[in-house]
Design a protein around this nucleic acid. Sequence first.
DNA 1: CTGAAAGCGCTAACAG
DNA 2: CTGTTAGCGCTTTCAG
Lengths: 341, 341
Amino acid sequence: MTSVEITERRKRATVKDVAQEAGVSRGTVSRVLNGQPYVSEAARSAIEAAIARVGFVPNRAARSLVMQSSQAIGLIVHEPHSLFVEDPNIASILLGANEALSEADYQLSCLIADSPRDVDRLARYLSGGLIDGVIVVSARAGDRITAAVAELGLPAAFVGHPRDIGDAAYVAIDNRGAARTITRRLLDTGRSRVGMIAAALDRDSGADRLAGFVDAMGARFDPQLVQSVPFYSFSDGRAGMRELLERAPDLDGVFASSDAVAAGALEALREAGRSVPGDVGIVGFDDSSWALRCDPPLSTVHQPADQLGRAAAASVLAQLRGDTAGSPIVLECPVVWRESA
Amino acid sequence: MTSVEITERRKRATVKDVAQEAGVSRGTVSRVLNGQPYVSEAARSAIEAAIARVGFVPNRAARSLVMQSSQAIGLIVHEPHSLFVEDPNIASILLGANEALSEADYQLSCLIADSPRDVDRLARYLSGGLIDGVIVVSARAGDRITAAVAELGLPAAFVGHPRDIGDAAYVAIDNRGAARTITRRLLDTGRSRVGMIAAALDRDSGADRLAGFVDAMGARFDPQLVQSVPFYSFSDGRAGMRELLERAPDLDGVFASSDAVAAGALEALREAGRSVPGDVGIVGFDDSSWALRCDPPLSTVHQPADQLGRAAAASVLAQLRGDTAGSPIVLECPVVWRESA
DNA sequence: CTGAAAGCGCTAACAG
DNA sequence: CTGTTAGCGCTTTCAG
């Protein structure tokens, strides 16, 4: 026995090899591979043995080529760099989608669009036949990815609801309704000067949460009490709270448009020496891992991120089976009342 | 113009269509597609025009089949469910790898192994020719994925260094050295009863961080002051700290083996009414987004997660070019001294 | 410089 | 029930 390491990849066995080894034709091998009926027990077991013996694994490129399908679904994350790192929702959506696809024996491939260059490459990749459908997370209206997906006519499901996806499938939560509910609750617990840190107004979720806030405030709504910030991030939350405090030192309640934003706001409040929930009550949105980590734990809206992922996956799968896109799916998101308000 | 929506995917144009449209042969089209020389200017421009006109996009499945390569690299995340959601390092690694691959015009496909079923499907997927190489994140010794990758002989690079990857490429940080350094620092600032919350001892990183701690403690090492917990998580950090406090109420310093663990420990310390850094000093590891969020901000070891991703990607790319796996890459990770100790 | 033809590995009719 | 025969869309000799 020599000590030479066999590092190079040896040529992989093909159906032909299996056929030879089992003494049948390639057609028959293909049949057992695809679990088709009309194969004799003898042939089947001979082939199965042969497959094990030669270590055969089907070549998916070849199979995709002839089947015009790949049993793989892409999940596109189009998120500003830093946010992907901070946002626990994305990972949950990913995990949920993966579970649902896994059950259907589909492979999930998570694709990142982090630069214009990425977007171009992705568009080519998607149309290359290696992906049967896509789930698009955190798209904004006007995204090039959205356009590319639409043009390709690839089965798709969006998580969230950018305005420009036409009649494409989407799964979402009722951001506006939930925002309204939690804001009312803040009002009902005796807060009178309630402000909002409104993040990501360029996204449907951000805009809708603001709309819900406005709904709930009704006549009491004061534009001075709304601070808009670009992202659902801790640092934007802190910055937004500082602004708000400056403009309205008398506020006693805050609706932060995400838990991360609320966590940042909490920090700013602490710096400013305000107690929570004593001086000011604060509520978030998402019920992500941030919520429990905060001190005090956040009252917030529970967002079933993994279910969003599951539902989006189910939608793509349904489209693949030939169903039409179907009606939008809107998931429940109950308020979770903790100690921050 | 009718109002019928063209929803169905129309048959995509092929090289043949382009060739016809441009009045040349498929071979010539292929040549311009691949930027090969020996094509007349006339033919080239005719073909380019034709490509645009018919909206041709090459079919990657077909190309992969004949080229035996797909220009796509997989990144396998094999992490306990919840951790993937909580660990900001993974996203950073992902982003770093994506950047490096993007520059080389490779597509990154992030693959999740979240169940035994996933692992099986993944193994098949990897050997299907749709992926040219893999980056494996957060593997533990004995992982089936590791075995599958090895058996396939797929170019691979590990982030971290499980003991059983043989001479496969890996990029890592000097966990042991860094742990030693930061523990010493804790000692040097006057702490004498220093404990450790040691997470993930089944991982090289976890075991090495403990080893570094033991190194630094030298004669002062007391096994009673080490609490082992399963994961690098907030909740395990909190639980571990409670244990430690019970066993050794007199401790005045803690090395938490990750920032998330430190954050959890901080929480337990707060519950127990200990001030930080007054009563007890605490240090973490990772310099992730947790570190700055904590109150007080954590002294910790900076882990260049995005660089790990970049380096792993570079290694896979090099192997694809035919280089040997090369020597392991070990990245610097300086201590960042903040306020928690 | 370009066309014709072979074939990557697999599945899907279609006769037996 | 099984073998044979076409391709899927692309690249790549090999002659011209």
